[in-house]
Design a protein around this nucleic acid. Structure first.
Lengths: 246, 246
DNA sequence: CGTTACATTGAGTTCGATCAAGCTTAGTGG
DNA sequence: CCACTAAGCTTGATCGAACTCAATGTAACG
């Protein structure tokens, strides 16, 4: 398949997601879809797409690959705030602020669409339906981050990892990227540790526990959920952010 | 001072904050200010203003007193997501989603302005400047929550509490409510525990450590910061969200 | 003046961190 | 094609931060 066709498919994935989430017709997103195709670009794994403190550019959407939002503390420790999956916004509406309050890094090679600041402002100004959908997607992602915060504060390691796997699988499933309880899972155990506030050693041991409990297998960057209901229940999973737009 | 006058003062505090944060003239917020005065109401301490899962109403602004956003896990544990201080938005733009993904509770008796959903949508539709400012304030508050997430994942108890105190004092200071290193601090040690992901027992002991280190005193719901610079440094505090609008 | 909520202290325990080593895999270049 | 390297994964041993349970102290309040 030619590069252009692939990009078009991915752009369609983004707009379909926005249409569903905002309960608006796909036609409302034609302009956005074209813009995405024009502004698609790539970055290699481990590249920082933007760093904390830098001036924030315009709207950026993930078309393929995984990225993460993160913060570095002055003592050198890193906290991942969330994973950015295909079809999601990278740093929704950050262009309203002067500077980024967090960084954004590619975990795998990524394809993404990057609009300029002016362009973004014009887009949301001229197309209220698009603006609305982007905001809804933004609030959705913030809901995911909030659930994550609850994890860090209140769940033990086993529950945290279980919750992470539920969350990721179901989000990928929403965009049609994962099914049959399988999905890609590129983060290293170190990345998982930075996301869950655990050491990579403890992540390793807890993964073994999850395997032993027959909940998942995770090998070669592929996640298989052996028992989704059991995993949800182990994770204290209650998807309050699965809810769609008003 | 008459009730109306007090409300007007508080409404002015809100609009001044929005004007500063969005770098827009105060005049842009005249309509909002009037609306706030009309829609002001009260709630007692411990009241839930809205609960997770409920349909989300319109824009709500805190005029006086403290509230908190929180989530309950199915195992009964509670995680506070953030404190809502006077002048801040309670659940910014949640009305875009069908349901609340978290709850909102008063920690003290509170005064707040509650707009209806229709009213909110009309307001932001007819007054783009107001809409813009509200979004900027929203992104600001999300930045605070993100820093909080980093705290939960990467800071030890001592640093977490230190960070909390820096954060709260400086946010109150922004709105002119705190100065000279003094401020109200109504949350109980239990509340602090739910916010920081620590047990109340450990909060108690860590507070003693902070006192012993001559950083703060906290008695009778009043916080005194004895050495702000030392506290910041103990907290690994770097105010990336202190930055104002573009 | 009893009741209730909150704060404090002590003792024992555990979850997860750190340190340190060995192992596996994939990639690179001679 | 193999030697070498670098990342990441795995395991063991030890340690410490924070938890739980339980009791006591204190202060506000009807």
């Amino acid at each position: 398949m030619a590069r252009e066709d692939r990009i078009e498919l991915k752009a369609r994935m983004v707009t379909e997601r926005l249409a569903t989430l905002s309960a608006q017709p796909l036609a409302d997103f034609a302009v956005l879809e074209r813009l995405i195709c024009q502004r698609a670009q790539e970055a290699p794994a481990h590249a920082d797409l933007v760093r904390e403190g830098e001036s924030s550019a315009g709207i950026r959407m993930m078309l393929g690959g995984w990225a993460c939002r993160y913060k570095m503390l002055v003592n050198g420790r890193r906290q991942l705030l969330s994973f950015v999956l295909p079809g999601e916004l990278c740093d929704p509406y950050m262009h309203l602020l002067a500077r980024m309050d967090h960084s954004l890094a590619a975990l795998t090679p990524v394809t993404y669409a990057q609009l300029g600041r002016e362009e973004s402002e014009r887009l949301v100004h001229d197309h209220p339906a698009v603006a609305r959908a982007l905001w809804i997607q933004t609030m959705f992602e913030i809901g995911v981050e909030r659930e994550w915060t609850a994890s860090l504060g209140q769940r033990v390691a086993f529950q945290r990892l279980a919750h992470l796997f539920c969350d990721i699988y179901l989000r990928l499933n929403m965009t049609g990227i994962a099914e049959d309880n399988w999905c890609d899972f590129p983060p290293t155990q170190g990345d998982i540790g930075d996301a869950t506030g655990l050491s990579s050693v403890h992540v390793n041991r807890t993964l073994q526990d999850l395997r032993a409990a027959n909940l998942i297998t995770l090998t070669n960057k592929r996640l298989f959920i052996r028992n989704l209901e059991a995993l949800k229940s182990a994770a204290l999973f209650r998807p309050s952010y699965g809810v769609v737009a008003h």
